[in-house]
Write a protein that binds this DNA or RNA. Sequence first.
DNA 1: GCCGTCTGGGTTTTT
DNA 2: CCCAGACGGC
Length: 721
Amino acid sequence: MPISLNAEQQQAVDQTEGAVLVLSGAGTGKTRVLTARLAHIIGSGLARPWECLAVTFTNRAASEMEERLANMIGEDARQVWLGTFHRIGLRILRRFASELGYAQNFVILGEDDQTRLIKQIMLSEGYDIKKYTPEAVLAAIQSWKDKGITPDKVLTGDRTDFMSGRVLGIYRMYQDRLKSMNAMDFGDLLLLCLELFTENPEILAKYQNQFRYIMVDEYQDTNTAQYLWLRLLAQKWGNLCCVGDDDQSIYSWRGAQIDNILKFDHDFKDAKIIRLESNYRSTAHILAAASSIIRHNEGRLGKELRVAPNRDPDGEKVKVKGLYSGREEALAAVDSLENAYRHGTPYKQMAILVRTTAQTREFEEAFITNAIPYQVIGGAKFYEREEIRDAIAYLRTVALPSDDMAIMRIINKPRRGIGDTTIDLVRQKALKENISFFTALKDLTRPDSFELKPAAKKAAAAFLQSHALWTEYAEKLPPFEALKNILDNAGYIAMWQESTDIKAESKLENLTELLSVLKQRFDSIPAFLEHIALISDTDEIVGDDKVSIMTLHSAKGLEFDTVILAGWEEGLFPHQRALDETGDFGLEEERRLAYVGITRARKNVYITYAANRMVFGQWQTGIPSRFLEELPAADIEILGLPASFKSYSNYTPKIYKPTDPPPPPRKQEAKGSKSGLRVGIRVKHALFGYGVIMKIDGEKLTVLFENGGKKNILASFVTTA
DNA sequence: GCCGTCTGGGTTTTT
DNA sequence: CCCAGACGGC
C-alpha cells in the first residue's frame, strides 16, 4: 500500500543501512516513518519479518505500530519482533532462563511485591524502615538496574547509596531472594538479558545474526541498560535506526539518559542524522508557543518545527487564563470544553493535562457537576488496585505454589487465623532451608511437626486444603470460572460484601470487571498472568466520547484537537521537587514537559493557573509559572488574569503576599432545591466521609466519595458540606 | 490473632 | 485533610 511521505521522511525510510538517527519533532510523522521503513525493508526483501526488531517504549505504541504495519504488509507483520524493551527482554529470557539459573516459568514481580520483599529484607536485617523507607531503597536499586549495574559492579562510593554503602547489601540480598523465589522484577527483564548476552556469547550471536535491522522508538527515553542492550544486538549488522526527539525527553527520573540521543553520532560511527521538522499536527500559533518555550533550554540538538504546507496557517491563539482557585480553574475548563463541543469538537478530542495525579480530582468533580463525560487515564491504575492484586495473587499461588510473594499476600486475606507471627515463622523456615513458603507451610502442618501452635497449625492445614481445591478448579475449569470459584471459596468476595469500607462496592465492581476481562480475552491462566505483568493502564484507550484527564507524562505520543494545560504555577509546574533535586537539569526537563504538553494539540490550547489552591486541606497561594513568561506574546491571548498581571510582559511574580490571610474559598452558588442537594454538591456522610453528588434519583443519591468509592445512598444520610 | 484508636507524613512524573 | 501503619486492649 503506497503511503505518501515528504522528502525527509522518504530519506529516513530509504536509508536502511548503517546507524541512523531520525530526529523527529512532535507531530512530524515518526510512527508513519517507522512503519513505512519496516514495510520497505520487508517488502523489498532486505530482511524477513522476524529478522527485524522494533522496540517501543509503551505497549500502546507497539500495538499501534503493529496494526499500521499489518495494514501495509498483512499477516507478516505479526512475525516482526515488535514490542516494548521489557516484553522483548522477557521473550528472550523465557527461552534461556535456565542459562541464568532460573526456571523457565519464573514470575514477574510487580511494584508492590518488590517493595514488600525489600521491606522484609530490611526488617530481618534490623533496619529502621522509618528512617530509610523500602521505597527509597527500591528506588536506589532500580536506578542501578537502569544503568545496567549488577550488585558486583556497583562502585564503592556510588552516591546513589544514601545509606552509606548499606543499600548495596540489600541489593545483593534482594537479587538472591528473587532468584531463589524464581522471580524477576521489571528491571531484571533487561538487566538479566544483558547478563545472558555477556555470559553466553553464542546466545548473543544468535540474536545478533537474527536481527538484521533494528529500530527504536522514543530513543530519547532509553536508559543505560537499554542502550547497552541495543548496542550489543546491533553490533553484527550495524543497522540501527533510532527515532526520537531530545526535546521530548521526560523520563530522566526513571533512568533515561538524554545523552543517549545527544551523543548518538559519537556512539555509532558514520551515523546519519535526519531531521523531521514538518509538523502535520498543530497550528502555527501552537507551534510558535511550543518552540518559544523549548528555546530556553540549552544543549539541544537543534530543530525547529514548521507548519507543513497546505494547512490552515494560523488558527486560534493559545489562550492563557489566570483563575482565582483550583475550583474555578476546573470550572473554566468546563466552559472551554463545552464551548468547543458546541463548535463541533467531540469530547474524545479534548484533554486536560496536569502535572500531578492529585490535580485530577478537581476536574472530575467539576465534570460530574456539569455532566461532561470524562475518563482519567493512568492515575489509580486498575491492575495496581488492592483487590485486583489480591485476585491475581490467588491465581498466581494456584498457578505456581512456589510464588512466595503471592501466597504471603493472600494467606490471611480474608482473615483465616494465620497472623503475622505464623507467617514470619514459616518465612524463616523457608529462608533457612531454602525452600518455598508453600513447602515450608506444608512441612509445618505435618503430624510430626510441632513448631506451630495447634490453632495456627489447624488454620494452616485448612488453608492448604483450600489451596488444593483451588488448584483443582484451575486445572479443570476455564480461567474465568476458576478464578470466580477460587475467590468465592476463599471467602474473598464475601469479605468485601460484608465490609463497611466505603470502597467495598467499587472493589467488587472492579473484581467483576477483572473477571469479564479474563472471560473475554484469555483462555489460559499463565497467558493472563504474563499479560498483566507487563501492561499499564495508559495502554488501554477506549473509543467512548469522553474528555481525557491525564498527566503530561502519560500524554506523550497522543494528540487532541483541544488541550487544556492546567496548574501552571511555580512549584507545581515546574514542580518544586524537580527544581530542588536536580536544579537546572530538572528545570529543563520540566520545560520539555511543557513542550510535550503544548504539542499534543491540533487546534486549541488553553493554559491555566490558579492563584489559590487547596493543598493538604490548606489554602495555598501560588504564583504563575515562569513558563508563562516564555510564551511568545504574539501568539497568545491573555484572559482573566488578576489585576497585577495586566501587563503580561513585565509582571512581578507576586500577586498575593504570603502574609495576607489566605483568601476564603469562593462559595459555590449553594441555592437550589430546598434540601440544598444538587448534583455536584459536596456532602458529608457519617461513615464514608466527604463526597460529591453525581446523580439524584428521588431520595436516592449516587455519591463519589473522596477516598475513591462510588456509592448509592439515601439523601437523609448526608449533610451538605 | 483481631480490631479499634491514634498519629505523623504525604502529592512528581511510570515502562 | 486523608490514610497507612503503629500500638494497645481484648
